[in-house]
């Protein structure tokens, strides 16, 4: 089946080339076709890799206990979906990531507002956070298990802890980096302090907040992988650790695939948010 896809891909590629060399296509469509060809070309090597992988597995060169074949992974994914294992574990993981990230947003934004909008807040909040951020968050995993046991709490809190820093750091930086000339303009226009925060400081810092959010989303998944593999009775990480005991590399790979897909999807989600919220930026116009 993969071979068929590959063959089709190269056929389209050749057909396209033949048309462009005859010079019968108008310049504009040709450029569009060219772009299309470019993205097709980028698919060639991954597909080739998949084909080699499948071949190595089928011929017994690589055993299923070392690395399951792509075909086997697809079949396993279907089975796991059908018997509800995947859906259940995915739901558990999503809730942990979602709650953890949600908490991180609330905490990170609040702290950044306190530190960014007042001198006292800066001294009280920023100094300790700058110290804390030098600790590798993953080094706290054993501590968290000691403190919070093995329930949902340590997993959610690990996600929160990891995801709070990027939110805080970027939003704080954004608030502090507001153009002083705009703040001066706000003053001469007679805006109150509240109006200045609402109409000048917050929208001005929003791009930085979204950059932080993008980092946070990535970190949330990372923290989740670690937290669920250390100690859990459900979740994608747990599913993978369970599979390890039975040398089921296919299940482990399905887990990896799911993490990758959700990492990608959430990143796209934030990008979409950026495009919606930052329409005022000329680049956003062009990209969107």
């Amino acid at each position: 089946m993969l071979d068929a896809v590959l063959a089709q891909g190269s056929r389209i590629g050749l057909g396209g080339n033949a048309r462009t060399t005859t010079g019968q296509v108008a310049p504009r469509p040709r450029r569009a076709l060219h772009l299309h060809l470019g993205s097709m070309r980028r698919l060639v090597s991954p597909l080739l890799l998949l084909a080699v992988w499948q071949a190595a597995s089928s011929t017994g060169l690589v055993s299923a206990q070392t690395l399951a074949s792509p075909l086997q992974i697809m079949l396993t994914a279907r089975d796991l979906l059908n018997d509800g294992t995947l859906t259940h574990n995915l739901a558990v993981s999503l809730v942990r990531a979602g709650v953890g990230l949600g908490l991180a947003i609330v905490i990170g934004v609040s702290l950044a507002l306190v530190a960014g909008l007042s001198r006292i807040g800066e001294d009280l909040v920023d100094a300790p956070i700058q110290m804390l951020r030098t600790i590798p968050v993953l080094a706290l995993v054993p501590m968290f298990i000691l403190w919070f046991g093995i329930g949902e709490m340590p997993k959610i809190l690990l996600v929160t802890l990891g995801a709070t820093f990027p939110i805080y750091l970027n939003l704080y930086k954004g608030i502090r980096a507001i153009d002083p000339k705009l703040l001066e303009a706000a003053r001469t226009l007679g805006l109150t302090h509240g109006e200045t925060v609402r109409h000048v400081i917050l929208p001005g810092a929003l791009p930085d907040l979204l950059v932080g959010l993008r980092f946070s989303v990535g970190i949330s998944w990372l923290m989740l992988v670690v937290a669920e593999q250390v100690n859990a009775n459900a979740g994608i990480g747990h599913m993978m650790m369970d599979a390890e005991d039975f040398l089921r590399t296919d299940i482990i790979l399905v887990g990896m695939l799911v993490y990758a897909l959700f990492g990608l999807a959430s990143d796209q989600g934030v990008r979409l948010l950026e495009r919606r919220l930052l329409v005022w930026r000329p680049q956003a116009h062009r990209r969107g």
């Binding site: 000339k181 705009l182 303009a185 001469t188 007679g190 109409h199 929208p203 001005g204 005022w280 930026r281």
Partner: peptide, 23 residues
Amino acid sequence: STVVYQEPRLFPWKRVWHNVALG
């Protein structure tokens, strides 16, 4: 009294009419 500076100093995230109406 109010000021117009050498640079316009508009708020880029507010539409033109909103920049004028602000405050």
